[in-house]
Write a protein that binds this DNA or RNA. Sequence first.
DNA 1: AAATTATACAAAAACGTTTCAATAAAACAA
DNA 2: TTGTTTTATTGAAACGTTTTTGTATAATTT
Lengths: 378, 378
Amino acid sequence: MLGFNKQLGTFFRSLRSSGGNVGRKDSKKATVTIRDVAKASGFSASTVSIVLNNAPLARYIPLPTKGRIQKAAKTLGYHPNIFAKSLRSKRNHTVGVMLFDITDPYCTPILRGIENTLYQSSYLPILTDAHNERSRFERYLEMLLERRVEALIILANWLFLDINILSDLEKPEIPTVIIGRELQSNSTSSVTVDDEGGGYAAVAHLYALGHRKIAFVRGPKALSSSKNRWRGVQRFTRDTGLQIDERLAVDLPDQLNPNMGVDDAFRMTQELLKQKRPFTALMAYDDMTAFGAVRALTKAGIKVPGNCSVIGFDDVSSAALFVPSLTTVHQPLESMGASAVNIAIDSISSAAENRKVPAIHRKLPSEIVVRESTRAIP
Amino acid sequence: MLGFNKQLGTFFRSLRSSGGNVGRKDSKKATVTIRDVAKASGFSASTVSIVLNNAPLARYIPLPTKGRIQKAAKTLGYHPNIFAKSLRSKRNHTVGVMLFDITDPYCTPILRGIENTLYQSSYLPILTDAHNERSRFERYLEMLLERRVEALIILANWLFLDINILSDLEKPEIPTVIIGRELQSNSTSSVTVDDEGGGYAAVAHLYALGHRKIAFVRGPKALSSSKNRWRGVQRFTRDTGLQIDERLAVDLPDQLNPNMGVDDAFRMTQELLKQKRPFTALMAYDDMTAFGAVRALTKAGIKVPGNCSVIGFDDVSSAALFVPSLTTVHQPLESMGASAVNIAIDSISSAAENRKVPAIHRKLPSEIVVRESTRAIP
DNA sequence: AAATTATACAAAAACGTTTCAATAAAACAA
DNA sequence: TTGTTTTATTGAAACGTTTTTGTATAATTT
C-alpha cells in the first residue's frame, strides 16, 4: 500500500512535463531517458541498456556496476520509452483481440480468460468489436496490423463466417488464433469446444431421465456450432434408436444478433406448441434459446421442469440465476480464452526464434451441468 | 468485398518480411518505409511526410506533387511505422480502459459504448481488468502509463474505492475519467448515473402500485451507489409520509464479487422471510440482488409478482430475459461509456493545445422500465 | 615473456518518423 | 534594377532505444 505510493509517485514525476531532473544544464526535459541514467550512474547508455534488460552481455558486468545502475534508474524513476523500444525491437507486447459482438454473454468469460493469461506474460490486449459488421471487422483488422500487434485472437462468436474472411487471415504473417470455429487452415490456429460431444451428452441426459418425445430448437443453419451439436444428437439416435419427430425440430432463422435469439426462440417455441404434438423435453441450441423457450412454455401454462424439461448449451453466467436455473452444457469458456493466449504466445516466441511451427487446433471437452430445468419423467 | 481483398492484400505484402520492394539495390528490406515512397515518387522524405499527414506546410505543395506522392504510397502499399510515428509525436491514439471486474454484467454495455465512441475517432482501447484486486489495478495502471496511453477510462463498478486510489489518479498528468463514481476532484472527470433519483423513482413506482409494506435489500454499505439509492428512498418517504419498517431493510455484506450478490441476496431474503413480517413488495439494490430475492421468494412459495412485487436496478441485459422479466431502473450504460470517451477525447485535444480545462462531472438520468415483476396490489 | 582469452565498458549506427531551418526559385513591390 | 515576399522543396536534427563492433584492461595460458 505504502510502497505503491512511493513507487508510482516517482514514476508519475518522471512522466511529468515540468522539469523533473533538477541540476542538469538547461533542465527543461520532460522525461528521464536512458542517458540521464547513464550520466547519473557514471556509465554509458549502452551499459545501462544492457544491465536493465539483462541482455546477453550483462554476463560480463560486475555486480557493483549493476547495482549502481539499477539504483540510479530507480531514484530517477526511469521508465524506458516504449515507442523507442518497439521501434528497435519491433515488439510491443500487445495482442489484438477481435470480437464479433461483445454483447453476446458468451464473450465475457472468454475475455476474462484471455485477459488473465495475457496478464501473466505482461501482455496487454487491444480490444475491438466488429458489431457483426464485416466492414468494421476489416477496418479493425487493418488498424491492429498497423499497430503491429504481435498476435491476433479472434472470437468467432455467433458468426456467419464466410470463407473470404478466413482467407484474409492467412495473409498477414502474424500468429492468429480463432476461438469458436475450427479451420482446416494450417496457418491459423483454433480453439473450439466439442460441440458434437456436447450435443450428444445433452440428448443423452434427457434420454436418461426417461424423455422420448423431445423437441429441438436448433440454431441457425449457417452456424457451424449448430450443425455440430445436431450431429451429436444424430449420433445419439443412431446409437440408441431414439426416434426424432422431425416436425418437432425447428431452426432459428439466420440472423446476426445473438440476443435476438431469445425472441426468435420464443416465437419458434410458440409455433411448436401450436402443432399440438406432445413433447416432454426440449433441447435448445444455446442458453439464450433456452430462455426464450422457457418463457414461451411458461406463458402457455406449461411448467418447467414440471411438465417439460429444457436443456440449453453454453452455460452463460445468467443460466445459473434463471428461475428455474438452467441445465445446460458447460463450455469451458475461460479455459478457451486461456488456451488461445497460450497458443498465441507460443507462436510469438517461435516466430521470434525463426522456428516455423504449424497451426495448432485444440478442441476442449464440454461438460453437462445439471440444474433445475430438467427432471425425470414421473 | 472485392475492394477489401485488393487493399489489404497490398498491405499484407508490405508488412511481409520477404523482399517486397523489388529492383532496389540490395532489396532485402522487410517493410516499405517513407524513404521508399520518397524514391519512388522522386521527392524527399520530408515532402512525403508533409503530404501524407497534411501537415501545415502541405499548403505550399502543388496538387500534381501531392498526387504523385499519394500514388506512389498507394502502389507501394506504404503504411507508416506507428512506433516511429509515436516516438516523434508522443501520441499513439490509444486509451487505457480499466475495469474492476469484467464479470459484472454491468460492464458489457458500458464497454460497448466506450468501444463504439472510440471507434468513431479512430482510437483503440487497451483493456485491463483488476479482478477487484488493488495490486492488480496498480500494476495495470503502471503498465498503461508506460505505454503512454493518451487517456484513462476507469470503470468503478462494484468497487470499494478507497481514497488512496483516487489520490493516485491525481498524479499522472493524463486525462482521466471515472465511470460510476463521482469525485469532487477537479483533475479527474466522472460520469455517473443519478442513483438518488433512481432510488426515488423505484420506490415511487411501488408506492403508486399501492404497496405500503415494502422490504429493502440494500447494497453493501461501503458502496456509494448503495448510499445514494437509499437516500432517494428516504427523500421519497419524507415527501409522502410512507413508513419504512427498518426491520424489513437489510444490507448486503461488504464483499468483492458482484455475482455473489445473488447468493447473498438469496440468503438475506430468506432471513427477511423468517421474521414473518408481511410485505407486499421488495426493492433490491440491483438486478443481481433482485434475481437472488426472486429465487428466495419463489422457493418459499411466494409468487412474483402475484404475491410480492420485486424491483431491481441497473437493467442488465438478462433482466429482460428473466421469468418474470424484471421491472428495474434502467441505467443508460452505453451512453455512459460514450460520454466518458467524449470527455476523454476532448481533454486530450485540449491538452494538445495546451488549454487547461477543469474536470467535467456529468450525471445522467436513470429511467424506470416496467416489466412483469411488479404488479398493483389487488 | 609472449600470446591468448575473458572481462568491462563505450562509440556509433541503426530503427522510421516528423519538423525546423535553410535554400532556391518564382512572384511581386519599390 | 534591387529588394522583399511567397511558394516549393530539402537536409539534417531530433525522438529514445538496442545492438554491433571496437577497445582497453585484466586474467590466464603457453
